[in-house]
Amino acid sequence: MGLETLFGNSFLTTRLDEAINWGRKYSFFQYPFVTACCGMEFMSAWASTYDIARFGAEYPRFSPRQADVLFVVGTVNEKLAPVLRRVYDQMCDPKWVVSFGVCATSGGFYDNYATVQGIDKIIPVDIYIPGCPPRPEAVLDALVKLQKKVSKESVLDREHDR
């Protein structure tokens, strides 16, 4: 990590969890599963004005196997549900899920034959962002909340809890 140069020959003690979680929470690689209008607001949260890079999460991976956080952005319909499940299953542990906007969270106002009434019917969700669409501030808030959540986890408990 390059820390050696900073501390010279002295050494650093910490709990393993703290060190690992510190690394994890400031280097989220997200997989943007963008399906609808929320995508626009998602992009603005990522662009320079709001600049999500300040929180260490600027790097989208379009392969689920390289991603830590699945952002489900927009309406998920029944035809797409198995695809979302497959993408989630392809992600390596540790992984987190953010439900972005009311459509992903509850189906929103699409209470009809085609729309899944919330992605938590298909996959576990860590953070829900309300709004139609959510403002970028809400996205950053959710990211910080997710970081807090991650910092309370232990390397021991993530593997078998799903």
Partner: peptide
């Protein structure tokens, strides 16, 4: 056929698997 007027308004069908 979901847009028929006699299709149940809140009718849900079983979730499908990945093909």
């Amino acid at each position: 056929h979901p847009l028929r007027k006699d299709y149940p308004l809140k009718g849900r069908q079983p979730r499908i698997d990945h093909a």
